[in-house]
Amino acid sequence: MPTEDELFAAVDEVLARGPILPPPAERTRLREAAGLTQEEVAQVLQARRETVIAWESGRKTPRPPRLQAYKRLLDGWAAKYPTSDPTPTE
């Protein structure tokens, strides 16, 4: 049986791997809940609309520094527009 310290160390290692984005459908839900278009998100993140479409579909993942900025935006929306689904997002 692992100790609490061992489990915490394993969790910290996973957290240190970098920001994890919510599933693609949740990315779209959050943007729509905020009332923004893909073009508006693209302008904020200084990217092309097609790039935001690829992020929302899960075809592509943003690279730093946009990855951290996009995650911050999504996290802010998630706090403001929580899901009504009681199951956690992956």
Rank of each mutant, 00 (worst) to 15 (best):
M1R: 08
M1F: 03
T3W: 03
E4Q: 09
E4V: 07
D5A: 15
E6K: 09
F8N: 08
V11L: 11
E13C: 04
R17S: 12
R17E: 10
R17H: 10
P19G: 13
L21I: 00
P22I: 00
P22M: 05
P23V: 00
P24T: 04
A25V: 01
R27F: 02
R27G: 01
R29N: 13
G35D: 06
L36W: 10
T37L: 13
E39H: 13
E39D: 04
E39K: 12
V41F: 01
A42S: 06
R48Y: 06
R49W: 11
V52Y: 08
V52Q: 09
V52H: 06
I53V: 13
I53E: 08
W55Y: 07
S57T: 10
G58W: 00
R59F: 00
K60G: 01
T61P: 00
T61C: 02
R63A: 11
P64I: 00
R66K: 15
L67H: 05
L67D: 00
Q68E: 15
A69K: 14
Y70Q: 03
Y70M: 06
D75P: 01
G76D: 08
A78C: 04
K80V: 12
P82M: 05
T83K: 12
S84F: 04
S84P: 05
P86S: 12
P88S: 11
T89F: 10
